[in-house]
Amino acid sequence: MNTKILLAASAFLLGGLGLAASFFPEEILTMLGEPMAGTGPLLVQLLGALYLGFGMLNWMSKGVVMGGIYARPLVMGNLLHFFAGAMALLKQTQAGTPEAFWGLAVIYVLLAVLFGVTMFRHPLKEKASV
């Protein structure tokens, strides 16, 4: 598996979510039907900062050898984030929430599976060119 593509894809997803949450917290809360009073917008912006930081970590680490014992903390952090996020999103989709949650849930499940495979697979050696 090409972990460079996996990390770049997760970096773009997290970066996009982070930018949206950082710059449009009121719009996100309105879309979700939540009140904009109190600390709601602040919490959405903090979530955006978290996503931006995690996305940047993935982007800057995309050249690192991953799998087995290599880059285990990076793989484990991504696996935990995408697995727990997938479970929360799947639970929320059962409550009849907006359709956007279904698409995000599918992406999170896919990334959780791919990071799970990366976690327990030894990185493939490059084939020597003759």
Results as ranks from 00 to 15, higher is better:
35 P>H: 09
8 A>I: 12
29 L>R: 08
80 L>D: 00
13 L>F: 11
73 P>C: 06
7 L>E: 10
72 R>P: 01
122 H>T: 08
117 V>H: 03
12 F>R: 03
114 L>Q: 03
8 A>G: 11
64 V>A: 15
48 G>F: 06
57 L>H: 06
66 M>R: 12
62 K>R: 15
83 F>A: 15
102 W>S: 14
53 G>C: 10
54 F>M: 09
29 L>G: 04
15 G>L: 06
75 V>Y: 01
129 S>R: 15
41 P>L: 07
92 Q>S: 10
67 G>L: 03
92 Q>C: 09
4 K>V: 04
98 P>S: 06
9 A>H: 03
85 G>S: 05
43 L>M: 13
104 L>D: 12
55 G>D: 02
104 L>G: 11
10 S>H: 09
38 G>W: 08
66 M>L: 12
62 K>S: 13
8 A>H: 09
79 L>A: 12
10 S>A: 15
108 Y>Q: 07
3 T>F: 08
37 A>K: 07
125 K>F: 08
130 V>W: 14
48 G>L: 09
46 L>F: 11
11 A>T: 07
125 K>V: 11
106 V>D: 05
60 M>N: 09
18 G>H: 10
30 T>Q: 15
51 Y>H: 14
125 K>N: 10
36 M>T: 10
39 T>D: 12
101 F>K: 03
106 V>W: 12
127 K>F: 12
59 W>I: 05
58 N>S: 12
121 R>E: 12
129 S>M: 14
80 L>S: 02
66 M>T: 14
103 G>A: 10
103 G>I: 11
90 L>A: 06
85 G>I: 07
2 N>D: 11
28 I>L: 14
127 K>E: 15
36 M>W: 02
88 A>Y: 07
5 I>R: 15
115 F>V: 01
88 A>E: 04
79 L>P: 02
130 V>L: 15
108 Y>K: 07
124 L>C: 01
31 M>V: 14
74 L>M: 05
77 G>V: 04
35 P>F: 10
